[in-house]
Computed example of a mutant assay.
Amino acid sequence: MKSLLSLLGLCLFAHAAHAGPSINVGVVYDYLDGDKSTYLKRIFNGGTSTAFVKVEVLEILYDEQGVAKEVPLQTQLDSSARDGLMASPARLIVPANGLQGTRLVFLGERNNERYFRVRYIPVVPEKEDAFAVTEEEREAYQSTLQAGVSVLAGYGTVFFVRPKDTRYDTRIENSGAQYALHNNGNSVIEVDEFKNCVVGKADDCHPTTKNHVLPGRTFSFDKEAGREYRFKLVEGQASKDQVVKG
């Protein structure tokens, strides 16, 4: 299965670098619980000039082999089809050293878990972008950026929409040579802060990882003598520390 980590990434939009907007979207994984339909996402601008941010949403679909692809939402193609994730507003004006929020709203059926890629893209406002600025303000902003060398950096996040009737059912198999977690529930679970270390040497470890296990999938690793494996098993709001000896 193509890792959800591969669906993330920093989208760099080189534009002109001593001053300019610099946005921060916080965590890159967000989760909408089964009893909620809206989620507030806050965007911080730590730069020295206003950030004009476009919010774009794509749905992540998996085929039978677990390969992911991103597709446009039907709601973007047909305004009468209300099924998917929408950002309101989808255009943000974030002042320097300021904060703005967009509300992510899910409309449609919640029988199965669904996944979305949400992109937050700083732009130089154009007429067609629907930002509430005059032509004079747009030109002045563009001239300000062009006076220096600025990098407009956008971020992609992954948004999980849990089923309405969320059910967790994690099965563990701990054999002599391998450890496996099977997600038999209907919502994603996390193997968070996964550490593979030499026993008794907390500073002799492989890089720490975060892993998402989708419904019907398995996370496993081979156990090696003299090593221990520590992680948090996260099922929604519940988190359990796990230690596995090699």
Rank of each mutant, 00 (worst) to 15 (best):
K2A: 04
S6I: 04
C11M: 02
L12A: 14
A14Q: 10
A19R: 13
A19S: 15
P21K: 11
N24A: 14
G26A: 14
D30H: 08
Y31K: 15
L32S: 01
D33R: 13
G34D: 11
L40R: 12
N45T: 06
G47Q: 11
G47F: 07
T48F: 03
L58V: 01
E59L: 12
Y62N: 04
D63M: 05
Q65M: 10
A68V: 01
A68R: 00
K69P: 02
K69A: 11
E70M: 15
V71G: 10
L73Q: 12
Q74S: 09
S80Q: 08
A81E: 13
G84K: 04
P89D: 03
P89Q: 08
L92D: 07
I93T: 14
I93H: 01
I93C: 09
V94R: 06
V94Q: 09
G98Q: 01
R110Y: 11
E113Y: 00
R117N: 09
R117K: 15
R117P: 06
V118Y: 10
E128I: 11
D129T: 03
A130H: 01
E137Q: 13
R138W: 05
E139K: 15
S143E: 09
S143W: 01
S143N: 08
T144D: 12
T144E: 11
T144W: 07
V151A: 11
L152K: 02
A153W: 00
T157C: 14
T157E: 12
V158C: 05
V158Q: 01
R162E: 14
K164Q: 06
T166N: 13
D169T: 09
R171T: 10
N174T: 12
N186E: 05
I189T: 07
E190I: 11
V199K: 12
G200W: 03
G200Q: 07
G200T: 14
C205M: 05
C205D: 10
H206P: 00
N211G: 07
G216P: 10
S220A: 12
F221L: 02
K223V: 00
A225K: 12
G226N: 05
R227I: 02
K232G: 05
E235M: 15
Q237F: 09
Q237R: 07
A238F: 06
S239Q: 04
S239H: 02
D241Q: 14
